[in-house]
Amino acid sequence: MKTVSSGKKSWNNDIKAGHAKRLAVKIAVKIALVILCAFLCFIFLFPVVWMVSNSFKTNDQVYAQMASWQTFFPPSWDITTWWVSYTKLFTDFGDFGQSILNSILYCSVTIVMVLLINSLAGYALARFKFPGSKVMTTIILLLMMVPVETSVVPTYIILYYLGLIGEGTAVIGYLIPGFASLFYTYMFRQYFLSMPPEIEEAARLDGCSRIGVFFRMILPLSKPIFATVAIFTFMGSWNEYIFAQLMFPNPSYQPLQVFLQLVNTSTPKDIGMVMASLTISTIPIAIVYIFAQKYIVEGVSFTGLK
């Protein structure tokens, strides 16, 4: 850093004054930054605080405290009074516990299959030259723009013709449409394109097969993208409920989200219970995110590089 001085006579004083001034500016900037960060933290964090604090209240308490700062705090400091909504949730819905297990099972299977199927396809698009590979990439980009809100019924009809809506096969029918995702394939492709091909060449020369290279070399080096796709898949699959209700009229197969939807849409609405259910459904996402944060940051960033 350079010091700028003006005039000869009092340059010593100037330096002192300059120092003090710059110090003051520096401190002011620091304070401003701290205030800014605190403010931003509040803006971004308060919904979570609101959701969790209201999940500890009864419906009447929620509304009674809505228009005051109490809305961001638990109803009282007696922790034993906080669990009314949670208890109600588990007693009102007999299959609630089972549904959490179902959700975990469905999510795990979906994540494994999504990672496997789409990473292989992404790798093929990144590293192999084969007829249709260019077209595929273009189609992928185009399809991302189609509004898909109305394709539930066609999917159901296709599943019917594949024999996948019966009692025994409905689980497969429910899971399988979610396996292939063009968006994830594209993310994998982008990631693999960013990796230097030299390592693979070396392994190939050592006699490793294509598939061997993929599993032994590429996979361990691509943790960030796998973690990112995994968490997005998790969030998508964890939040799905329309298809679940359609495929499983029997509640013992239904995932958690179907029950949360019931709480959400039931009248009269019990906001405390709604918030409790939303809190429960956010916990797993938060846990996964906290543990995989490092990879996710890297992985998300990669969707923007290139």
Partner: peptide, 17 residues
């Protein structure tokens, strides 16, 4: 090899996407 790698994805996305 390329087509084989991409095959599961191609088949599933043709049917379900």
């Amino acid at each position: 090899s390329g087509i084989l790698f991409a095959l599961p994805c191609i088949v599933l996305s043709i049917i379900f996407v």
